[in-house]
Amino acid sequence: MNTEQPLDRLLKRLPRHATPARDLWPGIEHAIAANGQRVNNRARRGPRHLAMAALVMVAFLYGLTHYIDNPGPGASQTLNGDALVTVLSQQHQAQLTSLLAAVHDTPAVTSDWTQQLDELHDAAQAIKAALAKDPDNRTLLRMLQNVYQQQLTLVERVHAPQWQRI
């Protein structure tokens, strides 16, 4: 007896359409109208916000790279490994929050970017766990810096206007 046949028969008869219990159009129409207003506002201010966020990001990462490569004579006294990781993480979080706020109304080009962001976050957590055991490991610090940079670049790229991605 072929037990798969009933399933295939039922699949062929499966209706293509289903009807929602409530009228969904009014909510869609309202959201479209509200979004049109936001898009108009963003067209005036959006690109400038993105550019400023990108500029701050570049300045922060430049300073970070310079610090890790050349900590300076008094640096080890004022900022040891643990404290450095804490400061890096706090500054990165502030930067990421600011960037996410800047792109909040901009549609993303992919739907899974938050998942990718979470995966990078998990990677950063793993590096920080390793740094907790070896706080002055410059290679780990560079890796952490790299992951943070990837997070910022990801957010920026998926929200960049189409003409910027060409």
Partner: peptide
């Protein structure tokens, strides 16, 4: 109708499927 059917089969929840259908068309 087809969008809602797909949303419902994916979510297995009518209320969630209605919200998802709205999100899709927005």
């Amino acid at each position: 109708g087809r969008v809602f059917a797909l949303c419902y089969r994916l979510t297995a929840d009518r209320a969630l499927a209605e919200d998802a259908t709205q999100e899709v068309f927005i």
